[in-house]
Design a protein around this nucleic acid. Structure first.
Length: 492
RNA sequence: GGUCUCGUGGCCGAGUGGCUAGGCAGUGGUCUGCAAAACCAUCUACAUCAGUUCGAAUCUGAUCGAGACCUCCA
């Protein structure tokens, strides 16, 4: 079988994945800035890496997955007088910066839990690593690649670029950057506009501040990721991920910082998840063109005709490849929901399948191989899902006695089908209370089915149709077959 | 303006130099008290123009269109 290949943004090629330490994988993903609620676009990026994390675990790797929380805030722009976003929001709401951070961190975790995310191995915060960040700045100054001006420290990009290529990840040339720098309205103290801040002096109204060798201030925009990834994964590690929009300048700056500090490339494989668009436009907090995850569960959004379950939305997102732009629409979600229900129904059908002497009509081993090949080809979840649907077809055929399966193949099908759906794609999750309620609900429906069957035997179709139709209105669909009546409950 | 990506059937989305994923929707059939579901069969395609090739939707060039980044943003 083909081994795992991953598309590396640095080389723009799919490369065979070979961890630095056999059997272990170090993966760092740039986490959210917790100054407002996560939107669905954020969820998509983290979901891509959740799926990747899950698959690496499934392959048997010991994975240390680090995803940070940016709670120190980023500068809004150079002309922002040093007030960072956390502080700004705090002014607006007249509360403590850390209260804002806490509120949205909790929201972030709640949301990801609903979508059945696995927690990362370590979830460090920027504010918890100020000392480490200061140490890195000292090191960069010592090496001569940073300079201090009026209590701020900047990274000297021009100097760095003489020996290295600043822009190698995003395919930029420093000359182009110099030509295309927009606002040169220069109240900045930087030597060159391309230089970026490692440490910023805090002015009087800036709430978040820490003492440093350069005075009271706060760390620069890109430093935390270098500090935390180095601390927990080492000077070189396997995978660094994030949204496409972080490629430049954020990841470029990370490379510059780490290479200056440690003299080597920090990351083997750079991975970038693509954007989720809404109405063909990027979802972004700043433009207002976005939906919140909560909107799916309530259905209360101008973009939605009904509510959807978290698992269904997860299925919708994973039906597209993580490197493709996915355009969101209500119509696409509705179509996905039907497919999702079909897949889940098949999981139930499979539980009741009985094996026979031999398998006919399907090659389980080659199907299994195809599933792994799909995932091994840069985590191609859409292809995997297509393969799952070919198994759905086979499962339904067995149910109809149009195909058969041997005991051995049934075992393989069962473990593989369930592993890919639940363990790797991470679909369909119910907690204990929900399970308990579901069981009682199912028993109640079975009772109604029994009453309906009695009515049908007595040719009382008025009653039998009433049961069927009114259940359907509630969102429960009855499905008659030769073996009796089954049912499905709409996912939301 | 610069850099890059993309343009696939009614919709969403894979893929790729010849064998034309998958889901949803449509059509015909089987089944059913009637339906639905399921099963079987089936129809729509690769932005435009030119080139390379025995052969291109897939490679090259041009054109048109869309998006991303260049500024905090997953």
């Amino acid at each position: 079988m083909k081994e795992l290949h991953i598309y590396n943004s640095l080389s723009s090629k799919k490369e065979k994945f070979k961890p630095l330490e056999k059997g272990h994988v170090g993966m760092y993903v740039c986490g959210p800035t917790v100054y407002s609620n996560v939107h669905v676009g954020n969820v998509r990026t983290f979901m891509s890496f959740d799926m990747i994390f899950r698959y690496l675990l499934h392959l048997g790797y010991k994975v240390r997955y680090v995803r940070n929380i940016t709670d120190a805030g980023h500068l809004e722009n150079d002309a922002d007088e040093g007030e960072d976003r956390i502080a700004k929001k705090a002014h607006l709401e007249k509360i403590e910066p850390m209260e804002v951070v806490q509120k949205y961190t909790v929201d972030f975790h709640n949301t990801l839990n609903k979508f059945n995310f696995l927690p990362p191995s370590i979830e460090p915060t920027a504010t918890g690593h100020i000392i480490e960040q200061i140490e890195i700045i000292k090191k960069i100054i010592d090496k001569g690649f940073a300079y201090e001006i009026k209590g701020s420290v900047y990274f000297d990009v021009i100097k760095y670029n003489k020996e290295n290529h600043y822009g190698k990840l995003s395919g930029r040339k420093i000359e182009d950057l110099i030509h295309n720098t927009r606002s040169l309205e220069g109240q900045s103290d930087k030597k060159n506009p391309q230089d970026f801040a490692l440490w910023k002096k805090a002015d009087t109204q800036h709430i978040m501040r820490w003492p440093s060798p350069w005075g009271s201030g706060f760390p620069g925009w890109h430093l935390e990721c270098t500090a935390m990834s180095t601390k927990y994964l080492g000077e070189s590690f396997d995978i660094h991920g994030g949204g496409m929009d972080l490629k430049f300048p954020h990841h470029e700056c990370e490379i510059a910082q780490a290479e200056t500090c440690n003299g080597k490339s920090p990351v083997q494989t750079w991975m970038h998840a693509n954007m989720l668009t809404l109405n063909g436009q990027k979802m972004a907090k700043s433009t207002g063109n976005y939906i919140l995850p909560e909107d799916f569960f309530t259905g209360e959004s101008e973009h939605l005709s009904k509510s959807f379950s978290a698992s269904c939305v997860r299925f919708f997102i994973l039906q597209a490849h993580y490197r493709s732009v996915l355009d969101f629409s209500n119509e696409a979600l509705l179509a996905s929901e039907k497919g999702y229900n079909k897949l889940m129904e098949s999981v139930n059908t499979l539980e009741n399948i009985i094996f026979s002497n031999k398998t006919s009509g399907f090659n389980i081993e080659s199907w299994k191989k195809n599933c792994y090949q799909a995932m091994n080809d840069d985590f191609n979840s859409p292809i995997l899902i297509a393969e799952l649907f070919s198994a759905v077809k086979f499962i339904n055929q067995i149910k109809e006695n149009k195909a058969s399966i041997s005991e051995k193949d049934l075992l393989t099908l069962n473990s593989c089908f369930n592993a890919f759906i639940f363990e790797i794609l991470g679909l369909h999750t119910l907690n204990e209370t929900e399970n308990n309620h579901k069981e009682k609900l199912e028993n109640s429906i079975k009772l109604l089915i029994k009453i309906r069957e009695e009515a049908r035997e007595n040719k009382d179709f008025k009653l039998s149709d009433k049961i069927r139709n009114e259940l359907e209105q509630i969102g429960i669909q009855l499905k008659d077959s030769k073996e009796g009546t089954n049912f499905i409950i709409d996912s939301k």
